[in-house]
Amino acid sequence: MRIRPVGAHALLLDCTAATDVPEAALVEAWRAELWRRREQGELIAVEIVPAASTVLLDGLPDPIATAEQLTRWAPAIPNADTVRRRDAERGDGTEVVVPVEFDGPDLPAVAEHWGVAVPAVLRRLTSTPFRVAFCGFAPGFPYLTGLPAELALPRLATPRPRVPAGSVALAGPYAGIYPGASPGGWLLVGRTDLVLFDVDADPPSRLGPGASVRMAAA
């Protein structure tokens, strides 16, 4: 892990993978450890923001002292097999089930990329234990990990000018759900009525980093 200063009150943890553990697992391990440390009063930070391969700590009263602390903290880093087994066996009641109507216009394209029939795509998506790695692009947009790396998909060559709210989509190694209507270049496989972002809710995002997610055919 490399620690980089960002402005006067923030640090960026670069979790670029150096082992067989996926970067997403390294980021999740550090996110969980930092949230735990903050809850116990060992870390003072206004924001802990995970991304694809980094974690941003913002609102630090003393970034230099925090950086020294980070060098002494070591989260439990599971290996890739442990990550997959843990996600497959999770049954603690914290999983969010997302009802999905699988009628997306890009289902045939996904099936072609994966070399399977459309029903096999649906079976894969409904049997995969997803986890929210981070949120981005738009408020409440969850980037879901869980699909094998070999099933990564290209984005559309030309993004759609408007993707409907609730659209369930795939791109790269991620699955995602559009919380509101917006342009987008991900492959659309379905749609859900689940509200993902409500500015009046606490928290506003229905699916935050670390949340376990499973898709279910509506």
Score class of each variant (00 low, 15 high):
P5E: 06
P5G: 08
A8R: 15
A10C: 12
L11F: 07
L12G: 11
L13F: 01
L13N: 02
L13R: 00
A17M: 01
A18R: 12
V21W: 09
P22S: 13
L26Y: 07
L26V: 08
E28C: 06
R31A: 03
E33W: 00
L34E: 00
R36D: 10
R38Q: 10
Q40P: 15
E42K: 10
V46N: 01
V46G: 00
I48L: 00
V49N: 04
P50C: 01
A51D: 04
S53H: 10
T54Y: 05
L56C: 05
L56Y: 02
D58V: 09
G59V: 07
L60A: 07
P61S: 14
P61G: 11
A67M: 05
E68H: 10
L70I: 04
L70E: 00
A76L: 13
P78W: 07
A80R: 14
D81T: 13
T82I: 08
T82G: 06
V83N: 04
R84L: 15
R84N: 11
R85A: 14
A88V: 06
R90N: 01
D92Q: 05
G93M: 06
E95S: 14
V96F: 06
V96M: 10
V97Y: 10
V97A: 09
V98R: 05
P99Y: 09
V100P: 11
P105G: 11
D106K: 05
A109N: 06
A111G: 07
A111T: 01
G115P: 06
V116D: 09
V118H: 08
A120Q: 12
R123Y: 00
R123L: 05
R123W: 07
R124F: 05
R124Y: 07
L125V: 08
T128M: 12
R131Q: 12
C135Y: 00
F137N: 07
F137E: 07
F137K: 02
A138E: 06
A138W: 09
A138T: 13
A138L: 15
P139S: 05
G140P: 01
Y143W: 13
L144G: 03
T145D: 11
T145C: 15
G146W: 02
L147M: 09
A149N: 13
E150K: 14
P154G: 11
L156D: 01
P159W: 04
R160S: 02
R160Y: 04
V163P: 03
G166N: 01
A171S: 10
Y174S: 09
A175N: 04
G176H: 05
Y178W: 11
Y178N: 09
Y178E: 08
S182H: 03
S182E: 04
P183H: 03
G185D: 02
L187R: 02
L187C: 00
V189M: 02
G190W: 00
T192P: 04
T192F: 08
L194C: 08
L196W: 04
V199I: 12
P204S: 06
L207C: 13
G210F: 06
S212V: 05
S212H: 14
V213D: 07
R214P: 12
